[in-house]
Design a protein around this nucleic acid. Structure first.
Length: 624
DNA sequence: GAGCACTGC
């Protein structure tokens, strides 16, 4: 694999980058800042709580093939253990890999450890994340995202390049970490069986803040609070109310960090964004409503539901922990002790509440023989596994004989793309419709957060400028028009601002597109453009997304062809006021109703030609 | 006539 021996210095410690926040969150990770006097790194390392246990820790690890480390935040687990292992000569024959659920963490940790070891980043200490590989043949301590190691495992299921794998932040229970546990366990077992060097594995890990469920609720309470604050007795002092939720424009989000005017009390009304992502200093009291809006997954219908539900105990503790970070604080829970006792201990791991199609495809690609009985840390329900295999079967990615599931040649190719299976499939068949370039663009656009910026305050302006991009053929074609216009002005920032296009996300689209295009080229796919006639593009989408199709009923409502459940066009769609006879859609979201999001107009005939057998069965199911 | 929050390949 080609490596860049001299990593670009960009992306390191940019002013205002997340790193300045990270060092507050993780006291164990002391990051260099420009303008500071040089600090004695060695002395700092020795002050970390973990230093006292160093010898004992190393001796124990020598005896063990697997170990679990538990330590306080800031104890130095993540930065020190890999160095201790290396310094003690454990795992020196190969690479010590340390996984992180997030890119920034992998990058900043590598930078910190390189600094502690006084080496240039990318030599002895490096990192690998999507779009960036700052490692070389010299790299022995490699920080990486867990998703990246999972990708590597497809080519190297026994992880033979590694002598030690450390799965950090394992308590977060992301799908990638959960799957990695199974993969690493299997690699460990096989390496012992084959007399290879066994892997060593080790998971580490006077203002008011009110937690509420959503934007609407927050804005309503903000109005009430502002009314109340006008009529407070004089002894009370004034109150500054600040709402906080993700879709709030960044400038308004920053208001939570501004101290309230002197003598005034700041009251922050927030969604769970303040639970983990944003830390506000000076919070003395937390008020926890005990509720959260979260996604749930119904394996029978394959449908995600966004619903208000009770928090888990772990979440309640996390919320209370947001008070008094500098000083003693208190948390008021708006529920009884009995209710608290009845809360689930932990939030259900993500792997038990998401669609598993891509996880199963990936496991098959890395050669796991019996995916249905894979050693998951927390087993997903059999229905959820069955639904995933069924979906892959319908897409032609797997064959199923009795209880044995195997990858088809198409499935093998699909696994090469970092995409949901239905998108990989759409991309792989696009050369048959001579429109691979357009499909690459559309899938890249769907792979990142929305490139459309919709500030509620400027709703009318947004509608007016967006009109020129709107396609009567649906949201995919509208997005394609926006992308083409963006390319025409070479991504001009002023153009983006005038047209309410999020230029950062558009930049990500370009990166994703380049990555996917590289994979297509390696597979010798014919990359053609369909230029002005987009019928082929829609036909290709119909062939790839036929499982997500819906049809207009005589009464003007819609029914999903897969489950026969009633669905509706989401008001954000350009087809909201149209009545297309037949559409494919990206996703279903159950809130007040069951909404289809991102729609594309298709011919019913295209769906039939895409999957005749599937629709014959669906038809029979309707009749019976 | 509507948008919990993140993360990742």
């Amino acid at each position: 694999m080609p490596r860049d021996p001299d990593p670009p210095p960009a992306k390191r410690f940019k002013p205002g980058s997340p790193f300045s926040r990270l060092d507050k969150k993780k006291p164990g990770m002391l990051l260099p800042r420009a303008g500071h006097a040089p600090v004695n790194v060695d002395a700092q390392r020795k002050q970390l709580p973990i230093y006292q246990s160093r010898t004992q820790l190393i001796n124990q690890i020598r005896q063990l093939h697997s170990a679990v480390f538990i330590g306080e935040t800031g104890s130095g687990k993540t930065t020190q253990i890999p160095q201790y292992l290396y310094e003690a000569g454990i795992g020196r024959q190969g690479i010590i890999g340390i996984t992180q659920p997030r890119r920034v963490a992998a990058i900043s940790l590598a930078a910190r450890v390189a600094e502690e070891k006084k080496v240039q980043l990318g030599k002895l200490v490096g990192y690998t994340v999507r779009f960036e590989d700052v490692t070389s043949s010299e790299t022995k301590l490699k920080f990486m995202t867990d998703g990246m190691l999972l990708r590597e495992a497809i080519g190297d299921p026994l992880l033979l390049r590694y002598t030690v794998v450390i799965l950090d932040e394992a308590h977060e229970r992301t799908v990638h970490t959960d799957v990695l546990f199974g993969v690493v366990k299997a690699a460990q077992r096989k390496r012992i069986e084959q007399n290879k060097i066994p892997l060593k594995e080790a998971p580490a890990s006077h203002d008011i803040l009110v937690f509420m469920t959503g934007q609407e609720e927050i804005e309503a309470l903000a109005r009430t609070c502002r009314d109340i604050s006008k009529h407070l007795p004089e002894s009370c002092g004034p109150m500054t109310v600040v709402p906080l939720y993700a879709s709030l424009p960044p400038a308004q989000q920053l208001r939570v960090f501004q101290p309230a005017p002197k003598g005034s009390r700041k009251v922050v009304l927030s969604t769970n964004i303040a639970e983990t992502s944003i830390t506000i200093s000076g919070i003395k009291y937390v008020i926890d409503t005990g509720m959260v809006k979260a996604k749930r997954y119904n394996p029978d219908s394959g449908l995600e539901v966004l619903a208000v539900q009770r928090v888990s105990k772990a979440q309640a503790w996390q919320r209370s922990g947001r008070a008094g970070r500098e000083d003693a604080g208190s948390c008021y829970r708006l529920y009884t002790e009995e209710e608290f006792d009845n809360l689930a201990n932990m939030t259900v791991p993500e792997i038990q509440r998401c669609n598993l199609a891509s996880v199963i495809l990936q496991l098959l690609a890395l050669g796991v023989p019996d995916v249905l009985n894979f050693d998951f840390m927390s087993k997903p329900s059999p229905e959820s596994l069955r639904t995933a295999v069924e979906q892959l079967c319908i897409l032609g990615a797997v064959d199923r004989k009795d209880d044995h599931v195997s990858l088809t040649p198409l499935g093998k190719k699909m696994a090469c793309f970092p995409l949901e299976p239905r998108f990989s499939k759409t991309l792989l068949i696009s050369p048959d419709f001579s429109c691979a370039e357009e499909v690459l663009t559309i899938i890249s656009l769907l792979s990142v957060d929305s490139v459309l910026y919709n500030p509620p305050a400027r709703r009318d302006d947004v509608l007016a400028v967006r009109r020129k991009f709107i396609s009567s053929e649906g949201d995919h074609m509208t997005l394609l028009n926006i992308y083409r216009a963006f390319k025409k002005v070479s991504g001009n920032k002023d153009w983006c601002r005038e047209n309410f296009v999020n230029s950062r996300n558009m930049g990500l689209v370009l990166e994703v597109r380049a990555q996917l295009r590289d994979i297509c080229i390696k597979m010798n796919m014919k990359l053609e453009s369909s230029l002005s006639d987009l019928t082929n593009v829609r036909r290709c989408l119909a062939h790839g997304l036929f499982m997500n199709a819906a049809e207009l009923q005589p009464d003007g409502s819609y029914v999903a062809l897969d489950t026969h459940q009633p669905v509706a066009i989401h008001p954000s769609s350009v087809l909201f006021q149209a009545k297309p006879a037949c559409v494919v859609f990206n996703e279903l979201l159950h809130t007040s109703r069951c909404y289809m999001r991102d729609l594309c107009l298709v011919d019913a005939e295209w769906l039939q030609e895409a999957a005749p057998e599937y629709f014959r069965r669906k038809l029979r199911a309707t009749k019976s």
